[in-house]
Design a binder for these strands. Structure first.
Lengths: 207, 207, 207, 207
DNA sequence: TATGAATGAGCGTTCATTCAT
DNA sequence: GATGAATGAACGCTCATTCAT
């Protein structure tokens, strides 16, 4: 029992550090902050960060993987849901990502800015994980093509990149306040991205 | 005449340094390389880099702006071409960007990786310039909506982000060799991105 | 207790660095030495200097202020001692300064050479502190004039400068070994400077 | 004739550079300015500074020696003037120095700040020259002692240091605007310094 | 578990000086 | 004489990481 409590306390400290890291990374950027900034924000001595993590990088890796794995699981699960239309599936992926930002904008900012867009550093480290998302989306598109719901004029792989690229670009625009992001904008964005990718901008089909 | 030659020689050295910087930035990344790496690659003395540029950052800024301004001019010019369909305009923008990569993949890698995707550093520095591209594209979409060629179910601003995001995501995939990029892939990509954004993935309209 | 020991050890290291800096600054001069010279002399790692001080400049500032504040306190205290003649007060100031040199010639060399005479760098930084000394001396002269012990043919402000200038010039001469500085010279210098400033060089009065 | 003119033009350029250097050294300090600052101020290409001078240091050396040699000659000449009282001789030395400042405050600032007070750099380089001034003054005092005009309670060498120290301290105070320096202050200072050193501050003798 | 003192490699930048023209 | 491009050595400071307590 005492042991359990102690383990719990340790887990709490670890969580405390991770949460502080999100705030610091979001505010200053990974490279612009020092390990001591994270420790200060968490209210712990900075040697403790090294007790729970091997390095500053591992802190970011942890934050990224915790969240990204949820996304991957969600995409995989969607892929299996035969009753949903492909449009609905893409809508749910966009929803998941945009809602993640709505609920924890700092964490998503860190993931996007410091990992998925950081092509020369963490983007490279986590390339495989990031690709898994593209591949999951591509599988959904591919299946839709096989079932005749999406045409085959565009390769599934490519379509996945376009879809994900559109989503990430919108997130980036929010992060840097280039695009307004009030409550209603989140839901509008979901519609827009799916509308664009599924129906296109041309007149005719969607009216 | 002697003066002209001297000036020419100086301009050449400056160009030599810029070209070397492209190679070094592409190979090692901006933050991972030292100024001496650039000087070595250019075959000039360390200090000469500082004779022509105020800082390492200014070297990157110069590379980015040289190329980005061509893109902006090109978008502005397209916007005015009334005889072109919006689809054709978007096609030409994608062409310009993809061909830029085809002709100078190292430079485009630097611009994408170190500037437009580097949200926390140079992406922020050049935010305004980058936005100008989005705005130029948005103007094209807006005009197409006004003229009834694009439907108004998606805001022009948003459509521009989606289009640019798709393009950049494809470039990033090439840069990191996540997507094959033989000669034929470049032209296919142009078609795909325009097809996706203009006609959508749904069956029906485009067949 | 353990904590006290740790704090003590830290304070010792800080002192070690300050003491080493005195030797290095005295030997090589502030600008001619590198931070690594200080660290080497102190037998600590390079970075530790920056753990205790923000910059190389702060090391010198600390050395200067530590000692100069003692001088200022001493002058202020003398000013209040009504039973002492002004000549005695000036004698004690000269004594204090010359004895400081006798007991720690390296520290005084650093203070004089790198701060009070370094008119373009640290002398400017610490101008106010240095002036406080002049003003303290001037107050002593002024009081002596008010009480009829010093004549008013010379302004107190000016007299203070002349007195301090004479003292500093003698110190400088010692520092550069332009003037002999055996044990007996220190006491002789005290007499001389006070004799010169109080009685003057003219024959008549002092015989 | 043409040759003379050409030599003259060259001499003018050299002078132009020296005069510019005075302004730049006075404004920014020797170490805080670049050779190109001097060239810019003189309106010449900065390679030209190296045509006329071997180094940046030589420029300062030249400025110092040009003026200091006049001072030394003047002191030597005074020493021989048997008809003048020692007080009058000291007065003339103080006059010469203070008037030098009155007529060319920038040059004197450079000489005092960058050379005579710069104990660790140029003060050391020119130590012998600077000492010659002390020795010249000391010779005047010594002669006055031998002739019974000054008492022997203070060594001549020491008296010279005290006198020169007082003069330099007053100059320094003017340079850094610690002491007012209107036109009337220059003449008052001459009186004060001689009064202090010759008659002393004590009441009695001078009234 | 928790602390923070201690370590030291790494790099951008400055600028006096040289030299080809 | 005059120019300014070219050279390259030198150094203060940062900060991730280690480790004794």
């Amino acid at each position: 029992m005492a042991s359990t409590t102690r383990q719990q306390a340790a887990a709490d400290k670890r969580r405390q550090i991770l949460d502080a890291a999100v705030r610091v990374f979001a505010r200053q950027g990974f490279h612009q902050c020092r390990v001591s900034d994270i420790a200060d924000e968490a209210g712990v001595a900075y040697g403790l960060v090294y007790h729970y993590f091997d390095s500053k990088e591992e802190v970011l890796d942890t934050l990224f993987l915790e969240r990204w794995d949820v996304l991957l699981a969600m995409i995989a699960e969607l892929d299996a849901r035969e009753e949903l239309s492909p449009r609905e599936k893409l809508y749910r992926i966009a929803s998941f990502i945009f809602d993640s930002y709505r609920h924890d904008p700092e964490l998503m900012k860190v993931i996007i800015v410091e990992v998925t867009r950081a092509a020369n550093s963490f983007g490279l480290t986590h390339l495989t994980k990031i690709q898994e998302a593209y591949q999951g989306i591509a599988r959904i598109v591919e299946r839709a093509q096989e079932e005749g719901q999406f045409h085959t004029g565009v390769s599934a792989e490519f379509a996945a990149l376009a879809f994900y690229g559109a989503v990430e670009q919108v997130l980036t625009a929010w992060i840097f306040e280039v695009l307004p992001h009030g409550e209603e904008d989140f839901d509008r964005a979901k519609e827009f991205v799916v509308e664009t990718v599924c129906s296109g901008l041309d007149v005719g089909r969607t009216d």
